[in-house]
Design a protein around this nucleic acid. Structure first.
Lengths: 213, 213
DNA sequence: CTATATTTTGAGAGCTACTCTCATTTCATG
DNA sequence: CATGAAATGAGAGTAGCTCTCAAAATATAG
């Protein structure tokens, strides 16, 4: 899922020998840039970290950094879970209640991300509440996930994926889930993210506990 | 409300004689900058319009432009309806169902904005779908409205405004409403925005028409 | 292995949003 | 009118990002 946006498939280039030298090198540079960025941000913070510094530490030129990532925020974020989620969603039984499917799929992605690099998950959330540009990019990426969700939802319900209803519904879901992520970071990462997401899904399904909806 | 973000109180400086010359002049420059920006964007588009051009046409220096607006996006957006909404929300009878109150308040703000400058409302929506930076700023501004909503909601329900549930609920509302605004722009401004908002609120309250929620 | 074609990279110039500083101008007040 | 305060303009500086072009690295054919 996207709120947490990103977490590369951390297979070292050597693990994919079927790829040519060129491809393997590209993966390596990509990782070098990202690692350099994370390290520098940890040392100096996001704003104090310039592209030039990142390039230096990753041992590439600034041009190359921009060739790999369109913006500075994208170095930190960049998502790769949407296709996986979509596939998983489609694989669910067609008669399963939508919310159950969603819950299942989110659990999956979350587990995958936490298994991959739990530190990065937290760091991204942290940057999300501190750096407006990062939060923006995160929201953007969330709403891409939202579009994917619309597609899946439309398949299930037979509704128009671009109709107002589906759009509103999907976006309210993604908005709510985004807020979970931010809340988690703002409260110092207390509790398991998965549990918070579950509570959020309850709210989204049944309204506020008060019943006021 | 905020999705539409902004619409100045268009009272010419002369209408507020109680203010000193200094204050009146400030209002005038603010408007001059905004008008110049709108005009230039209409002529050339957002990206092609530079701060320098805006400054020239508004007959101020670039420095002054930034003194009045922190970013280029803010020249276009800048919201002033939140306090009004909050006041109006508080004035509603305490036993009125929350959704009814919300609906009422949104109608109000929407009417106010459309009465003020309907053209600007459309233009902002249009920029929102075309220019990522503007959309970002709009989302940001939306989530400020969301925070305000949390406060009002907490007063009503007695829940913690910073608790997960209220946050998720409020953000899912704002997210859904934001999507209405985008949908409206993407479909060429067909139909009345108010009607679309009403439909959206139905979805947010009762789930999708299918009943799948 | 060599030659050629294709990709990837680096260097550098250039644009623009945005920040900061300081002198100058403009308004407010006694 | 004089003095203090606020608003403005000019200008230098930073950093993200784009574009171009030549050099380097890799793939492919003979």
């Amino acid at each position: 899922m996207n709120p947490m946006t990103a977490a590369r498939s951390r297979l070292s280039p050597a693990d994919r020998p079927q790829l040519g030298l060129r491809e393997r090198k590209k993966i390596k540079t990509r990782e070098a840039i990202r690692d350099a960025t994370y390290a520098l941000i940890r040392e100096q913070g996001y704003d104090a970290t310039t592209i030039e510094q990142i390039a230096d530490r990753a041992e590439v030129s600034p041009s190359t950094v921009f060739r790999y990532f369109p913006t500075k925020e994208d170095i930190v974020l960049t998502d790769e879970y949407d296709p996986l989620m979509l596939e998983e969603l489609r694989a669910r039984p067609a008669d399963e209640p939508w919310m159950d499917s969603l819950r299942h799929v989110i659990h999956m992605s979350l587990d995958a991300m936490m298994a991959e690099d739990p530190d990065a998950v937290r760091m991204r959330a942290h940057l999300g509440i501190q750096v407006p540009a990062v939060r923006s990019r995160m929201v953007e990426s969330m709403s891409e996930t939202g579009r994917m969700l619309r597609g899946a939802l439309a398949e299930r319900t037979g509704l128009d994926p671009d109709g107002l209803d589906v759009r509103v519904y999907a976006m309210s879901l993604t908005g709510g889930l985004m807020e979970v992520y931010m809340h988690w970071a703002e409260t110092g990462f207390q509790g398991e993210l998965v549990d918070l997401v579950d509570r959020a899904l309850d709210v989204l399904e049944h309204g506020l506990p008060t019943g006021n909806p």
